[in-house]
Measured scan of single mutants.
Amino acid sequence: MTVLPKDIPGDSLKVTVGTANGKPGDTVTVPVTFADVAKMKNVGTCNFYLGYDASLLEVVSVDAGPIVKNAAVNFSSSASNGTISFLFLDNTITDELITADGVFANIKFKLKSVTAKTTTPVTFKDGGAFGDGTMSKIASVTKTNGSVTIDP
């Protein structure tokens, strides 16, 4: 049996954390987006972790974005102690894959008090994996961190 590389060099799934701005007490939304989904033969499963400074940001909610089908079954998240974990699994293993680019999740943060303008990162942590529509590992994932700026 011969195994051929399935990824064209330079191609990767792009996962990007967005940015937001606000004043202390505001609730802002930071999107997590996927790009080049079709090039990577869709997404059938993924789990990953984001870190944030809990002294500056309070997670209000984490909701599935419009590219997630049947989110009540296929999407899960949790947030505590400065870490947000995400889990997606197409429970049907074929019919509810992520097949389009767009917003995977929206994180709502309540901004805490600061004395001066502060930009705090929302960054990928170690761990996690992504699988394509056949549940094979997506070897190349380009992750881009985001941030939230609090301006009193």
Rank of each mutant, 00 (worst) to 15 (best):
K143G: 01
K117T: 04
S136T: 03
K14D: 15
S85L: 00
T123K: 14
D63V: 09
G82N: 15
M135G: 02
A105L: 04
I84M: 03
P5K: 05
D63T: 14
V148E: 04
I67H: 14
P5D: 08
D7E: 14
L57Y: 10
D101Y: 07
T142A: 08
K39G: 13
T99L: 05
A129E: 06
A116G: 06
D95V: 03
L4P: 12
A129H: 00
A72F: 13
L57S: 10
T149M: 15
V3C: 13
G65A: 09
E96V: 04
G82M: 15
T142G: 03
M40P: 11
V141P: 02
D53C: 06
A100V: 05
D36F: 14
T92W: 03
K112A: 03
A72R: 14
K137W: 00
S136C: 15
G10P: 13
G25E: 12
S80M: 15
F130M: 04
T19A: 13
D11F: 13
P24M: 06
V3I: 11
S61L: 11
V3E: 14
V103D: 06
V17K: 01
V28C: 08
E96Y: 02
G65E: 09
G51E: 09
N106I: 04
A129K: 01
V68R: 02
F86S: 03
T142S: 05
V17T: 14
A105W: 02
D63N: 14
I150K: 08
T123Y: 05
I98G: 01
S80I: 15
T92L: 02
L56W: 08
T45L: 09
G22S: 13
G25Q: 13
F88L: 05
S12L: 12
L89I: 03
K23A: 12
N81C: 15
T45W: 00
S61K: 13
G102I: 12
T29F: 10
G65P: 08
K41Y: 10
A38L: 13
T134R: 14
K39N: 13
I138V: 08
G127R: 15
G65Q: 09
T120H: 06
F130S: 02
F130Q: 01
V30S: 09
P152Q: 14
T134E: 06
S113Y: 06
V60S: 11
V32F: 08
L4K: 10
M40K: 07
S136P: 01
F34T: 08
I8A: 08
P9R: 10
P66A: 12
F86L: 05
A35C: 06
L56Q: 10
K69Y: 10
L97E: 01
V60T: 11
L4E: 11
T83C: 07
L57F: 08
G10F: 10
T83W: 15
D151P: 15
Y49N: 01
G128C: 00
S55F: 15
A71E: 14
S80D: 05
T92E: 00
G146T: 07
P5H: 08
C46K: 00
L50G: 04
V114W: 10
T92M: 04
F86R: 00
I107F: 05
A54G: 13
K112I: 04
E96Q: 14
I93K: 00
S80E: 01
S78F: 15
I8P: 08
G51F: 08
G146V: 05
V141L: 06
P5C: 06
F86M: 02
T16V: 11
E96C: 00
K6H: 12
D36E: 12
T134L: 04
K112Q: 06
A105Y: 01
T120I: 11
K108F: 05
K143I: 01
F34E: 03
L50W: 12
T29L: 12
S80A: 06
G133P: 00
V60F: 09
D11R: 11
D36Y: 09
A64G: 12
I84K: 02
T144P: 06
F48K: 04
C46E: 01
L89P: 02
L13G: 04
T120Q: 03
T16F: 13
F86N: 05
K125N: 02
T119I: 11
A64H: 09
L56R: 10
L56E: 14
G44R: 01
T83M: 06
G65M: 12
V28A: 13
K69Q: 10
A35I: 11
T27N: 11
V43S: 09
V62C: 08
A129M: 00
E96T: 01
T118I: 05
A139Y: 15
L50V: 08
L111I: 06
I84Q: 05
K112F: 01
K23V: 11
N70Q: 09
T29H: 10
G25K: 10
T123S: 07
F104W: 05
T119C: 13
F75E: 01
A100G: 09
P66M: 14
T92A: 03
T142Q: 07
T144F: 04
Y52I: 08
D36K: 13
T99M: 12
T120N: 09
A100D: 07
Y49A: 01
S76I: 02
V103K: 03
D36T: 08
V141K: 02
G82W: 15
S76L: 08
T120V: 07
I150A: 14
M1R: 14
K23C: 14
K110H: 03
D151H: 15
M135T: 02
T99R: 06
D90Q: 00
F86D: 01
D53R: 11
T45S: 03
T2S: 14
A79E: 15
D11M: 14
V30H: 12
L87P: 03
I150L: 14
L97R: 03
G133Y: 04
K14R: 11
V28K: 13
D95Y: 06
A139V: 06
V122C: 06
D151A: 15
N42S: 12
G25V: 13
T123A: 08
S113W: 06
T33V: 07
D63G: 09
M135F: 05
D63E: 09
D26V: 11
F124I: 02
F124H: 04
D7A: 08
K117I: 05
V15P: 08
S76H: 06
F109M: 05
T16A: 13
C46S: 03
N106T: 06
T33Y: 12
T144H: 05
I107H: 00
K137V: 00
V37N: 12
S85A: 14
V15I: 06
G51M: 12
A54H: 11
